[in-house]
Amino acid sequence: MTVTIYDVAREAGVSMATVSRVVNNNPNVKPQTRKKVYEAIERLGYRPNAVARGLASKKTTTVGVVIPDIANANFAEVARGIEDIANMYHYNIILCNADKRKDKEIRVINTLLEKQVDGLLFMGGAVTDEHVQAFNTSNVPIVLCATTDEKGVIPSVDINHEEAAFDAVNRLIAEGHRSIAMISGTLQDPANGFARYHGYKRALEQAGIPYREEYVRNGNYKYESGIEATQYFLSLPERPTAIFAATDEMAIGSIHALQDNGLSVPADVSVISVDNSRMASMIRPLLTTVAQPMYDIGAVSMRLLTKLMKKESVDHAKVILPHELIVRRSVAAPKA
């Protein structure tokens, strides 16, 4: 039979109110009484009913997290940062994978809100009107994690993706490259796609390098799309001397495509990207990339959410964390 708070109170010889105070860490309990209640809980194997406690306090101490791709190492690192801070503030997380599909993202958001989570962290692509409509169906705080909304209204934590791409392409330009291709994400994605594409274009424009439409291919962030885009670049009458990929995974696909075609990286073609995932230091040559502080993005997002859930004052609801260029061995000067 299920052990109840009444059973614990009887076993410990105290009132149910005293057991409740002990379970909820109320300081107004004598140490000797607290010890007696804990011993009774251990003997009986009592577990507090989280649902009942949530109904009483109108808090569930749970946070919903929508993650685009649970298999992606970057998002896994963000989730680790979220969980570490959640544990610190005694919150549990419900992690939901959305497969980078808008219909599934909306469904998952609604499901988490129906579960009466105390707050929601959303990692995804474009924040559309449908997303905002789903967010507005609940009055719990919401923080965008590693993404932002177009109007900048919803609290968010991210890097400046345009500047990250700008710095990556400028590294290629500094090495002497002028024929620079890009493997972009979807331009409907405000961060990995649209913003990084504009950073690429701005770097070319600032250096006086003409923009060439045939030097840009849209990928889907996956390894295979890096291969496909690079095969296309190699089929052009004038192949690029350098490739900027919007993500490490596409960059690694690009490096393998170049090597499979008998070309050397970086002697024949340089490759650079944004992310600094673990794979960047596992590929050969080691990948030069712009590092996103993925763990910190998760940790800061969760800390911001805890402040909002506790109705604490927040100085900055839109947080931009710094990025860093990590120079390795996949970039060199073009052949004369």
Rank of each mutant, 00 (worst) to 15 (best):
D149N: 00
V51K: 04
L308D: 02
R47K: 14
S313Y: 03
S235P: 06
G193L: 04
V37S: 03
I142W: 05
N110V: 09
P68M: 05
T18R: 14
A56E: 09
T148E: 14
N49M: 03
Y6E: 03
L55D: 07
S273Y: 11
E214M: 10
I252W: 06
R278S: 05
D268M: 09
I320L: 10
S235W: 15
V274Y: 10
T306K: 08
K151I: 13
A134T: 05
H90R: 13
A40P: 09
D129R: 11
I106T: 08
D296R: 10
R196K: 10
N25G: 01
L263R: 06
I142H: 10
R278M: 15
T4G: 02
Y211R: 12
R178K: 13
N136T: 09
L144I: 00
P322T: 12
R239D: 07
D189T: 00
Q206K: 13
E150R: 05
K102Y: 14
A50S: 12
T306G: 14
I283Y: 08
A203W: 11
L286V: 02
M16S: 11
F244G: 02
I154A: 07
H316K: 08
P266Y: 15
S57T: 06
G13C: 02
A174P: 07
T289R: 03
I180Q: 00
L287N: 09
Q116D: 01
M123N: 04
P31D: 00
D315K: 13
